[in-house]
Nucleic acid binder design. Structure first.
Length: 600
RNA sequence: GCCCCCGUAGCUCAAUGGAUAGAGCACCGGACUUCUAAUCCGACGGUUCCGCGUUCGAAUCGCGGCGGGGGCGCCA
C-alpha cells in the first residue's frame, strides 16, 4: 500500500550508502512494523551492510556498526513524502508513516474497491482444483467434509488471486467396495429404501458397512461361518465380473444405487455452496487408462511382465536416482486391469489436453503422498511440462478421540449429523440471546452460524495436521471461531445500518485511538496475506487473518464510540473505518466459504 | 531398511531468517442503564524435543539423534 514511497526510501538508502562509500546489502526488504501507536516499515539492511564490512575487518561488531550506519543514513530519509520521520533503533532503520495520510488511504482504497479489495490481477494461467471426491455407496463423514471445505476454500482463494479456476470432482463410483454394497443391497434390502435424499444415502452407507462385515473374516470364526463368508465373497466377485462385462441388469442396479449417493452428494455440496464445474467418474477413465499403459510400454517408460507379472514403471531407475525415493509404480495388474495410478495418469492427460490446465491441484489426504509423487514423476517422464505445476495438497486425517474413523467398521461421524447438532446448539443460543429473531430469518442465521463454525474448525488447522474431532471443541462458539468473526461483521453492520449513507472520504486529522490504528493496520495487510495464501495454497492463512481482523474490530468497537463520537469528523472517519472493516471481513469470510449473517 | 509429515504454554494451534516467540481454550479476578456482552480488560502460563553447524541474527535453514504419525510393485 506504500509501495511507491518505500521504493523512494530504498533509493534514498542506496544513494546514502554510495555517498558514504559503504557496500550494498545482499538483500533488501521492508517489513511492516507496528510501532507503538504508530505505523511504519523497518529494514534490517544495515545489519547486512555491517556484515559485509566485518568480512574484511574483524574488529567490527556487527550490531553496533549496523546502528551507526542506520544513524548515518537518517539524513537521506528526511524528505520522503508520506513518512513522518525516520529512526534508527537497535540497528534497524525505521520509517514512521504519516498517520492521517495512511488511515485515509487505507479506508479509501477498501471502500472504493468494495468486494474487489485485495483481488489479484488477472493471471494468464488456468488452475484446476480437484476435491470433493468421495466414493459412492459410502457415507459422507466429517473427513469428507474436511476435504470438500478445504478444496472449496482453496478454489475461492486462487480464483480471487486472479487465476482462471476450474473446480473438479472425481468420485470413486466403481470398485470392489461399491460392488460389495450392491451385492448386499440386492440380496437383503432391495425395495426397502427410505424416503429422503440423506436418509437414503446414509442407509446405503450402512448397507456398505454391513456388506463388508459379511466378507471379512471374524476372529473366532466357526467352520460354517467361514464357508458362508467364502460364498459371499464368491458372489460379489461374480457380480463384479458381470458389471465388467456390461451385464444390463447389473449395470442398472449400479446406476440406481450410484445415483442415490450422487443425489446425497449433490445436496451436501449445495449446503456447502460448492459448485463443481467438471465431474470425472472413476468408471469413465478406465478404458483410456488401459490405452495409456500401452503407450507407456511403447515409449519404453513402462515394463511389461504380463501375464506372469504386472506392468510397472521403475521411477527411480528412470530418473537415475541412487536412493529409493519414488520407487516402482504398478500401472496395470497382471490380468490387464487398471489401478488407481493408471486412472490418475489418464485423468491428468485429460486435464492438460482437453481442459488446457496449466496448474493442477489435488486435494487428497496425506496417505496418498507417494502415489501422487509417482504420478507426477511419470507425467514428467512422459513429457508433460505441466507436471512441474502439479501439486498434491495433502491434508491430515480427521480422527476420533478413540481412534481412526472407518466406514467399514461403521464408527463414522456423519457430516449431516454434526451439522444438525451444530444448528441445534446455535438455535438454543439465539433463543436466549436474540429472541426477536424468529421464523425463516432465524433458520437462515442458524445455518450460517452452525455451518460456519464447522467450516472454520476445519480451516483453522494447518492442512498437514490431523484433526482429532471433538464435538464440543468443533462446535465452540467462543474465541477463535466463525461466530466470533461473524459477530464482528454483525456489529459493524448494525452501526452502518443506522446511517443513511456513508460519508465522503475524510481526513483523519485527529488523534487516533490505538485500536483504530491496529484495525487499519490489519485491514491494510489483507492483500499481502491473500497473495501469500494463494501462492502457498494455504487457506489457513486467511482463516487466521479473519480472526485477527475480527479481533481488531471488536477491540475498536469496545474502545471508541462511532456514532456518538465527540465531533462530526470523528464520526465520519470512524464510519469509514467501520465500513472498510465490514467489507474486509466479508471478503475474508467469503473466501473461507462462510456466510456473513445480517444479525445474530 | 528407505521415503514423507509433525514435535512451540496444561490442552488445541499460530509465527515471509529479524526487534521482547503470539492467539484461543481451560483456570483465576474484573466490566452489561452502552452503536447487540457470541464482546472486552487483567492475571497465570516457555530450555520452541536434544546436540552440532551455517548466519550479524535460527522456532524457522543444514547435518546427526530422540519421540509421534503416515507410506513403501498388482487396495483406493
Amino acid at each position: 500500500m506504500f509501495r511507491q514511497e518505500l521504493h523512494q526510501a530504498t533509493e534514498a538508502i542506496h544513494n546514502g550508502l554510495k555517498r558514504l562509500n559503504l557496500p550494498e546489502p545482499k538483500t533488501f526488504d521492508w517489513l511492516p512494523t507496528p510501532f507503538e501507536g504508530d505505523w511504519g516499515y523497518g529494514t534490517a539492511a544495515c545489519f547486512q551492510v555491517a556484515a559485509v564490512e566485518a568480512k574484511t575487518d574483524q574488529n567490527i561488531k556487527v550490531p553496533q556498526r549496523a546502528h551507526e550506519i542506520a544513524n548515518l543514513l537518517l539524513d537521506d530519509l528526511q524528505n520522503i513524502e508520506g513518512f513522518n520521520r525516520a529512526e534508527a533503533v537497535k540497528g534497524y532503520l525505521n520509517l514512521h508513516i504519516n498517520t492521517s495520510v495512511y488511515a485515509q488511504r487505507v479506508t479509501d482504497s477498501v471502500i472504493n474497491a468494495g468486494q474487489d479489495f485485495g483481488r489479484g490481477a488477472k493471471k494468464d494461467e488456468r488452475v484446476m482444483v480437484e476435491y470433493a471426491q468421495p466414493n459412492t455407496h459410502h457415507s459422507f463423514h466429517i473427513g469428507h467434509a474436511r476435504n470438500a471445505i478445504l478444496g472449496e476454500a482453496l478454489a475461492r482463494l486462487v480464483e480471487f488471486a486472479g487465476f482462471d479456476t476450474i473446480r473438479a470432482s472425481y468420485p470413486g463410483d466403481i470398485g470392489l467396495g461399491v460392488i460389495t454394497c450392491m451385492w448386499a443391497y440386492e440380496k437383503f434390502h432391495e425395495g426397502q429404501e427410505p424416503e429422503g435424499i440423506h436418509e437414503r444415502g446414509q442407509w446405503l452407507g450402512n448397507i456398505y458397512t454391513e456388506a463388508t462385515t459379511l466378507v471379512t473374516p471374524k476372529e473366532d470364526e466357526t467352520e460354517n461361518e467361514a464357508q458362508q463368508r467364502l460364498q459371499n465373497d464368491a458372489e460379489r466377485r461374480a457380480l463384479y465380473k458381470k458389471w465388467d462385462e456390461g451385464d444390463p441388469h447389473v449395470r442398472e442396479l449400479w446406476h440406481k444405487t450410484r445415483q442415490w449417493s450422487l443425489d446425497e452428494l449433490a445436496d451436501i455440496l449445495r449446503i456447502l455452496d460448492i459448485n463443481i464445474d467438471v465431474y470425472f467418474f472413476e468408471s469413465e477413465v478406465d478404458e483410456p487408462a488401459k490405452q495409456i499403459a500401452e503407450e507407456l510400454i511403447q515409449l519404453g517408460i513402462a515394463e511389461d511382465e504380463r501375464p506372469d507379472g504386472p506392468v510397472f514403471v521403475k521411477i527411480d531407475e528412470k530418473l537415475h536416482l541412487n536412493k529409493e525415493k519414488y520407487r516402482t509404480a504398478v500401472i496395470l495388474r497382471s490380468d490387464g486391469t487398471t489401478l488407481y495410478s493408471t486412472k490418475d495418469l489418464a485423468l491428468a492427460k485429460d486435464k492438460f489436453e482437453d481442459y488446457h490446465v496449466d496448474r493442477s491441484v489435488y486435494v487428497v489426504d496425506v496417505r496418498q503422498s507417494l502415489h501422487f509423487q509417482q504420478v507426477f514423476k511419470i507425467l514428467e517422464l512422459w513429457g508433460f511440462p505441466q507436471a512441474e505445476k502439479c501439486f498434491h495438497l495433502a491434508y491430515g486425517f480427521v480422527t476420533l478421540p478413540e481412534g481412526a474413523m472407518s466406514a467399514r467398521k461403521g464408527n463414522v461421524i456423519l457430516f449431516m449429523d454434526v451439522l444438525a447438532e451444530a444448528e441445534g446448539r446455535v438455535r438454543a443460543i439465539i433463543e436466549e440471546k436474540n429472541p426477536n429473531l424468529t421464523g425463516e430469518q432465524r433458520e437462515t442465521v442458524v445455518r450460517q452460524i452452525g455451518l460456519g463454525a464447522l467450516t472454520y474448525g476445519m480451516l483453522s488447522v494447518d492442512n498437514n495436521r490431523d484433526i482429532v474431532f471433538d464435538l464440543d471443541e468443533a462446535l465452540s462458539f467462543d474465541g477463535q471461531s466463525a461466530p466470533y468473526i461473524q459477530n464482528a461483521y454483525v456489529r459493524a453492520n448494525s452501526i452502518l445500518r443506522k446511517v443513511e449513507e456513508l460519508p465522503e472520504s475524510t481526513s483523519f486529522d485527529y488523534e487516533l485511538d490505538p485500536t483504530e490504528i491496529e484495525l487499519i493496520d490489519v485491514i491494510s495487510r489483507f492483500p499481502t496475506v491473500l497473495q501469500k495464501a494463494a501462492e502457498n495454497y494455504k487457506p489457513l492463512l486467511i482463516a487466521a487473518y479473519a480472526f485477527e481482523l475480527a479481533k481488531a474490530f471488536h477491540h475498536f468497537y469496545h474502545a471508541v464510540r462511532v456514532l456518538q463520537a465527540d465531533v462530526e469528523r470523528e464520526i465520519n472517519a470512524r464510519l469509514r473505518i467501520t465500513a472498510a472493516a465490514r467489507e474486509t471481513i466479508a471478503i475474508a469470510l467469503k473466501l473461507l466459504g462462510i456466510e456473513a449473517p445480517d444479525a445474530m
